[in-house]
Write a protein that binds this DNA or RNA. Structure first.
Length: 155
DNA sequence: GCCAACGTTGGC
DNA sequence: GCCAACGTTGGC
């Protein structure tokens, strides 16, 4: 099993939105970055754990989710009305992919980015690297365990 | 609102 | 293949 961190702006789609989604599951559509796509398409498997990160105001890890369906074509790229429309992607040759993400739980107290930066064990985390903008990124098993422990401690 | 970092585009 | 220009992300 692998571990990931996925970013979302809560104004766009929050962990609370995932709680309220049908079957508490959502397709992670709209990713238009090749590195992030490759992680989803090539490396994510159902059952992988996902740290759900809120970017923007009060950036923090809000809770835990999991990959519930392996990658399949992101059809929003084919829709001219969609914000993430990309005419280079077609049903015959899809360029963009998405996975389904299913809710597991909300941390009783979210772990703010500023706090994570103070945790010695997390100093090498991709999330904390300067200029990091990747919206889908791998998390090491150790980083994941440290974060889950912190989430328990704060509850 | 600002700005640094980064990815993409397109001319050459 | 290089690189300047541009758009976007995202923290502060």
């Amino acid at each position: 099993m692998r571990y990931w961190l996925m970013k979302s702006e809560p104004e766009c789609f929050s962990l609370e939105d995932l709680v309220n989604a049908p079957e508490q599951t959502t397709p992670w559509d709209g990713v238009r970055n090749y590195q992030a796509r490759n992680f989803m398409r090539d490396e994510m498997r159902p059952g992988d754990k996902v740290l759900f990160y809120h970017s923007g105001k009060n950036p923090a890890i809000a809770g835990l989710a999991e990959v519930s369906r392996e990658a399949y074509p992101d059809h929003t790229a084919w829709d001219p009305e969609n914000n993430h429309f990309d005419p280079r992607s077609t049903p015959e040759a899809p360029r963009w992919f998405m996975v389904d993400v299913k809710y597991i739980r909300t941390f009783s107290s979210p772990l703010p980015l500023a706090y994570l930066k103070t945790v010695p064990e997390l100093q090498d985390m991709a999330l904390l690297r300067k200029g990091n903008r990747l919206s889908v990124q791998p998390v090491t098993e150790n980083e994941f365990n440290v974060i889950m422990t912190l989430a328990e401690m704060k509850s």
